[in-house]
Simulated assay, not measured.
Amino acid sequence: MVTTSQTMLAVRLVEWGKPPELCQVPIPEPRGTEVLIRVEAAGLCQSDLHLLDAADGVPRLEPPFTLGHEVVGAVVSTGKESESRVEIGARVVVHGPCGCSQCERCTSGEDNYCDRRHELDWTGIGIGLDGGMAEYMLVPDARHLVEIGALDPAAAAPLADAGLTAYHAVELARQRISADGVVVVIGAGGLGHLAVQVLRATTSARVIAVDVRPQARELALACGATAAVDSSQLTSELDKLSNHKADAVLDFVGSDLTLQAAAGALRSRGELVVVGSAGGSITVTKGGSLPQGTRLSIPFWGSHTELRKVIELASTGNLAAEVDVRPLGDALSALGDLRSGQVNGRLVLVP
């Protein structure tokens, strides 16, 4: 039995421009549509670093709040309006991009593209709302929960963002991928290695992974990539596999250099999906570097329906994150390792 007189350990952003802190805070009590879960695993992500590095803060987000937007846990209690919508003890992954819950996007499960996002004081759990780098977490509504069945919590947590974002990126490009096509995945790290698996499981495309790190290229090959190269070898590898360039390029880095490489690797009427947030830019103009007919996508997270499909892929053994599991109390050192690039795959914290 959990009571609000108890406290819990949580990793909190207390003030913009300062490192996060390990804090003892009260365990929240669910009301209305809310659901309280006991956290079993919470993923760490480059997005957490982008959030922490926002020197002047992110408009509308007001610390303090608990970090963590890749969360798996077990339901321990609910508010009155969620009593019949979720079972106590259910093991769930949380759909993190909580929107306004009222607009057309949100009511169709696309909270990631909420029409009122600019009006809200949050982007999602762990990004304005208290997240899952804690022993317990309050979920705003039972509709944000997807049951995970027998999946291991540490393996399932990264699917909430890394798996979901990778799946959504592939979905955006799917119509442009021919039966014998080639897809280039730039950045074979935390999201890229999952995108390789989604492509292999859901398309017949041959996949070229591009990464400067030898260990990331090895991971991509283990995940089913046809080839894994550094950027200097991309053109020659495309020539080996096809008589045309790539049907789609998924850029999980997003720097000036990777966007230039993406434009050079793309065939006419191809799809460029820019997922990474490394601050690069590309000029969109007639007769510019992008081939004729290029469609450009800038995805954010993924939908509730897509999260269910991600869990299905994982449950059938077709999608698995490479994980490095650490105790919740080691969160600050884990963030340091992530920042220094010492992680291959995904970091996961367990209380």
Rank of each mutant, 00 (worst) to 15 (best):
Ser5Pro: 11
Gln6His: 14
Ala10Asn: 09
Val11Tyr: 03
Val11Ser: 01
Gly17Ser: 07
Arg38Val: 15
Leu44Trp: 05
Leu44Ser: 04
Asp48Thr: 05
Leu51Met: 12
Arg60Gly: 08
Arg60Tyr: 01
Pro64Arg: 02
Thr66Leu: 02
Val72Asp: 04
Glu87His: 12
Gly89Lys: 05
Cys100Ser: 11
Glu104Trp: 11
Arg105Asp: 14
Asp111Tyr: 13
Asn112His: 14
Glu119Thr: 14
Trp122Leu: 01
Gly124Pro: 03
Gly131Thr: 07
Pro140Ala: 10
Pro140Asn: 09
Ala142Cys: 06
Val146Met: 09
Ala150Lys: 10
Ala156Lys: 08
Ala162Asn: 10
Leu164Asp: 06
Leu164Ala: 03
Gln175Lys: 06
Arg176Ala: 14
Gly181Tyr: 06
Val184Met: 00
Val184Cys: 03
Ala195Arg: 03
Val198Ile: 00
Val210Gln: 00
Ser231Glu: 15
Thr235Cys: 06
Asp239Asn: 14
Lys240His: 14
Asn243Ala: 15
Gln260Asn: 14
Ala265Met: 02
Val273Ala: 07
Val273Gly: 01
Ser277Trp: 12
Gly279Arg: 07
Thr285Val: 15
Leu290Tyr: 11
Leu290Trp: 12
Trp301Asn: 04
Ser303Ile: 09
Lys309Cys: 08
Val310Lys: 01
Val323Gly: 00
Ala331Lys: 04
Ser333Lys: 00
Ala334Thr: 09
Gly336His: 01
Gln342Ser: 14
Asn344Ala: 01
